[in-house]
Design a protein around this nucleic acid. Structure first.
Length: 232
DNA sequence: AACTCGGGGAG
DNA sequence: CTCCCAGAGTT
């Protein structure tokens, strides 16, 4: 008997079509960020994820050049003075936590020549590495096909397919499976970026732009809003 | 499961 | 003014 929280066949089909449509959407409307460019080092790809935590991507994009000019590699970041790094991070917010996190992560990486473990189970001891950054490491350094699950991806999947049942996205097995299914295949990072961009530009938290949404006809959230209007 | 960190932008 | 942002660590 299947787990009550397993992905159903219908949900898989729905997510596959959503992935196809959002990749098309992103080819025209997707955002451009320096950390997505070809040739960006693994150091920058992983370290920037800490800058992005609970922070708008546009804010980080303005900050990006100065940060990686000042801290050009794991060893430079590892040997940074905490107070100096804190001051530098202040305009971005979360500066006390982030300074400690970045230095801890950098020292871990420096001591291993920038090479992170290939399995999630070994990531639990790494500073600043949780569910999201762990998947980023496995994706960008080890070529695995894993989703970058943040509030954006969670919101789109939950609106489009099924409302959330657990409070914390880190411990929702259904969401984890749905997100993995969504990005499965080659170039999973492009699929993650597509749904993140779609979430930021169209399926917004505060005021989603359903009237112009390309996938509204198959969206359960849009169906719900239509019903709510009809009931009025 | 609920709190906390935090400045800046959007509504 | 309130809400939100490519989360993670702590209680």
């Amino acid at each position: 008997m299947p787990s009550p929280d397993a992905l159903t066949r219908g949900q898989k089909v729905k997510l596959s079509r959503l992935a196809r449509d959002l990749l098309d959407w992103a080819s025209e409307h997707g955002r451009t960020f320096p950390w997505r460019d070809d040739g960006v080092s693994t150091y920058e790809k992983i370290a920037v994820e800490v800058l992005l935590q609970r922070t708008t991507a546009t804010a980080v994009s303005r900050f990006y050049g100065a940060f990686f000019e000042k801290y050009s590699g794991w060893s430079e970041l590892a040997s940074a003075e905490v107070e100096d790094l804190e001051q530098f991070l202040k305009p971005l917010g979360l500066w006390r936590r982030r300074a400690v996190a970045l230095i801890g992560l950098a020292r871990y990486a420096r001591d291993r020549n920038g090479s992170f473990p290939e399995h999630q189970s070994e990531h639990s001891e790494i500073p600043a590495v949780g569910q999201y950054v762990s998947n980023a490491i496995l994706t960008f350094q080890h070529g695995q096909s894993l989703p970058l699950i943040d509030v954006n991806m969670a919101r789109v999947i939950e609106r489009f397919v099924r409302p959330r049942r657990l409070a914390d996205i880190r411990y929702d097995p259904w969401l984890q499976d749905a997100a993995k299914w969504f990005v499965r295949g080659r170039d999973s990072a492009f699929r993650s970026w597509a749904i993140l961009d779609f979430a930021a530009l169209t399926c917004k938290a505060r005021k989603p732009e359903c009237p112009t949404c390309p996938v509204r006809r198959r969206c359960s959230y849009f169906a719900g809003t239509k019903q709510a209007v009809a009931d009025r």
